[in-house]
Design a binder for these strands. Structure first.
Length: 423
RNA sequence: GGUGAGGUGGAUGAGCGGCUGAAAUCAGUAGUUUGCUAAACUGCCGUACGGGUUACUCUGUACCGCGGGUUCGAAUCCCGCCCUCACCGCCA
């Protein structure tokens, strides 16, 4: 979340940036500042009264030790009076603080200057394209047909076991998943990312820290008996490794990668858009995450974009990189690049990665800080990106590399797949 | 799941109603000295939110797993919860 201090010192600028993100309640900023004023006032009054109580309590101890019982009893009466005053103060303080917090989490992150103006996905800006769109042979079909033809994924049985959107990978389909995960992780660790296998369920505090709560609970599966949430992305458990920590400056940047299944309820959409592997409730993804010094975060963002781009190049997939406009960005992000690959048989661009800089928005919630060279404690910046999400990569691989004889996998995957062709 | 023990600052670990925001040791850090692939000595060394100054300093409050309670006063007593460890049970 945003820091109240920033709202205070750059009020007009904050409102202007919120508008770029299509945020419609600029008056919240003023409300938050006035709530914070009230909070300070109450705390000041509370602290001063509490200080009197503390001083008197010490005095009582001394008087008792001297055997001056009368004076001690008299002082107790004073204390009783102050304590009576403290109670309503405390109540108000808690109330104001809760309200302040409740309002503060409603403010999305501020967009970076480089973020284009715009409301809808149509206004996203294509930064660059790469790779070659393949010329498919005459018999080419969409991936859902290929999946049937080669018996790679059994959606019907997945639906029987759980529900629609829970694919059952099978045979070479399952092996391809494993190959991709292995390749992606090796690619990431070679670039200096430390591999993790995190828990796939998280508690409320973790879901809050990365911004899934309070307002995206509808997106997550909720294990109510224990109040755990199934992770929608590895970002949640992995970023939370550093919740409530102060790291040394020398430890930065912290680079982490993890494969996890991801669970998303994705309520409300259907049809061709979600056919086959285009959109599912459970999917596999390898994520990269960095915690860095604030002044480094934009260079790191570029580095991560390049990292993902090179991965797509290695897979020989036609791709394009979009800079999302203010209205299409996520709530917690300061700037986001989406990566799309061209699924040749569907003739559609499919999103396979999203790389974002969150600046200090997540780390402020998480209380992830570092000590700078002056010994001052500062928030780190956090970034993450998919490297990569599997289902749409699979869809694209199947469609783009199909031949009459089978699917000829790109070079880099062959050692992991243990073969060259799906047939 | 059952039983028992325990959760104190970066680590180990003392304190078990007021002198404790917290001993000691280690680690860290700044310096002094001797000198050499290091040792000795000295200082500093938690976080958050305030006040005041806004440069350093100064000052208030809160925090000893979390939340409540008792008390003039709680790390210290009581209750609930969470977590860790050990043993048993069950199990991939």
């Amino acid at each position: 979340m945003l820091q109240v201090q920033v709202l205070r010192s750059h009020t007009a600028e904050v409102k202007q940036k919120l508008a770029k993100k299509q945020f419609k309640q600029p008056e919240l900023v003023d409300l938050i500042i006035s709530l914070d004023d009230e909070r300070k006032r109450l705390q000041n009054e509370f602290d001063q009264t509490q200080a009197k109580v503390n001083a008197a309590s010490k005095e009582i101890g001394k008087l008792m030790a001297q055997g001056n019982k009368e004076a001690a009893e008299a002082t107790k009466l004073d204390v009783a009076g102050w304590k009576a005053a403290l109670e309503p103060l405390k109540e108000q303080m808690v109330k104001v603080e809760e309200e302040l917090q409740a309002k503060l989490v409603l403010l999305p992150n501020l967009p970076a200057d480089a973020v284009p103006e715009g409301k809808t996905p149509e206004e996203n800006v294509v930064v660059r394209e790469g790779g070659q769109k393949p010329a498919l042979y005459a018999g080419a079909v969409p991936h859902w047909d290929l999946i049937k033809q080669y018996d790679l994924v059994d959606f019907e049985t997945g639906a029987k076991i759980t529900g629609s959107g829970f694919p059952l990978y099978k045979g070479k389909g399952a092996k391809l998943q494993r190959a991709l995960i292995g390749y992606f992780l090796d690619y990431n660790t070679a670039a200096g990312y430390t591999e993790y296998i995190p828990p796939y369920l998280v508690n409320e505090a973790s879901a809050f820290a990365t911004g899934q709560l309070p307002d995206k609970e509808g997106q997550m599966y909720h294990a109510t008996a224990d109040n755990f949430f199934l992770i929608p992305t590895a970002e949640v458990p992995v970023t939370n490794i550093y919740r409530d920590t102060i790291v040394k400056e020398s430890e930065l940047p912290i680079k982490m990668t993890a494969y996890t299944p991801c669970f998303r309820r994705e309520a409300g959409s259907f049809g061709k858009e979600v056919r086959g592997l285009n959109r599912v409730h459970q999917f596999d993804k390898v994520e990269i995450i960095q915690l860095v010094k604030p002044d480094a975060s934009y260079a790191v963002l570029d580095e991560m974009v390049l990292h993902v781009e090179n991965l797509l190049k290695a897979l020989q997939l036609p791709y394009r990189i979009l800079r999302l406009c203010g209205g299409d960005m996520g709530f917690t992000s300061a700037i986001t690049y989406d990566f799309e690959v061209f699924s040749a048989a569907q003739e559609r661009w499919l999103e396979v990665s999203s790389v974002s800089n969150f600046e200090s928005y997540q780390t402020n919630r998480m209380k992830c800080r570092y000590k700078d060279e002056n010994g001052k404690t500062q928030l780190t910046h956090s970034l993450n990106g998919s490297s990569l999400a599997l289902p749409r990569i699979v869809a694209c691989l199947l469609e783009n590399f199909q031949t009459a004889e089978g699917i000829e996998l790109p070079e880099v995957l062959r050692p992991y797949f243990g073969g060259t062709t799906i047939n």
